[in-house]
């Protein structure tokens, strides 16, 4: 019940502040604003207007979902293990993706949430909504804010995913001959149209996803981000929760090891 009321509030609240954000984006296009400055200004503006960032609203929604009793087993997610034991979320995200013996695979935060909903709570696959997964992922990630990323590559299964991730990072494919590395390693800090190309490795991006994107007003996990990249370069992306996505996440997260998590993020 509590969670339903909160959701309504969230929706109204977001649509109000996002109106302001969209107006600002239009101005920014004319003015050649530095991408980083643009982000800082948007953030400031939204904080000044509303006192809270959209990412946190999503995380609060996720928190409410996390503690709700749901599914055929009528359990909350406190019964699930995110790597540090059942119900422990503090610091768990900083060690994801990791290998889970119960599912016998390396899982990222998205995939692990789905496993939990399906196997522990007993929610059918069709009933698992993507927006709920994103909200819960935002909550779990927020609970690692301040913890250093720590992906353990000495686990053989994780290491294999890391190596596959490296291959995928450099893999040029599709009719645009694109790879992750072209934009996010070779041509960093340039712009494709108005979108600045982030130096993924140097800026340890794994530490600030899931993130709220003000340019199109959505909350995205890293899976969404990677899939959109591939879509943009005319390659059909891997399906959600699949290994190619998780492999790339392992690669990027491991390269961010030691950097402190600051999630949910706020990006263009």
């Amino acid at each position: 019940m509590k969670h339903k009321v909160l959701r309504q509030k969230v929706t109204i609240f977001l649509s109000l502040i996002l109106l302001g954000a969209t107006a600002l984006v239009v101005f920014a296009q004319g003015g050649l604003l530095d991408p980083q400055e643009e982000v800082a200004r948007q953030k400031e503006q939204i904080l000044a207007n509303s006192g809270i960032l959209p990412g946190e609203l999503f995380a609060f929604e996720g928190e409410s979902l996390f503690y709700s009793l749901r599914g055929s087993n009528n359990l909350s997610m406190e019964a699930c293990d995110f790597g540090l034991g059942a119900g422990v979320v503090d610091g768990a995200f900083a060690q994801l993706p990791r290998y889970f013996a119960d599912t016998a695979r390396v899982e990222d935060v998205d995939s692990r949430i789905v496993s939990c909903m399906r196997d522990v709570q007993g929610i059918t696959a069709e009933a698992i909504s993507r927006s709920e997964v994103v909200a819960i992922a935002s909550y779990i990630a927020m609970q690692s804010s301040g913890s250093p990323m720590n992906i353990d590559l000495s686990v053989p299964e994780v290491n294999t995913m890391y190596e596959a991730g490296e291959v995928l990072w450099y893999l040029r494919m599709g009719e645009l001959d694109m790879s992750c590395a072209v934009c996010h390693e070779d041509k960093v800090n340039k712009r494709i149209r108005l979108q600045g190309l982030v130096d993924v490795k140097a800026t340890a991006v794994a530490t600030h996803w899931p993130a709220y994107r003000f340019s199109n007003d959505v909350m995205w996990t890293m899976e969404d981000r990677i899939r959109a990249c591939w879509n943009n370069v005319s390659v059909t992306p891997p399906s959600h929760y699949s290994d190619p996505l998780i492999a790339l996440e392992v690669y990027m997260a491991a390269l961010a090891n030691g950097n402190v998590v600051d999630a949910p993020g706020f990006v263009r």
Partner: peptide, 24 residues
């Protein structure tokens, strides 16, 4: 690992030509 991403993605990866492979 690539096949796990679904048939379309795997096909796209498999469709790499020699030049793309060398550059990768």
């Amino acid at each position: 690992i690539i096949a796990h991403g679904g048939e379309n993605f795997a096909n796209a990866a498999a469709a790499q030509d020699d030049a793309q492979l060398l550059c990768s």
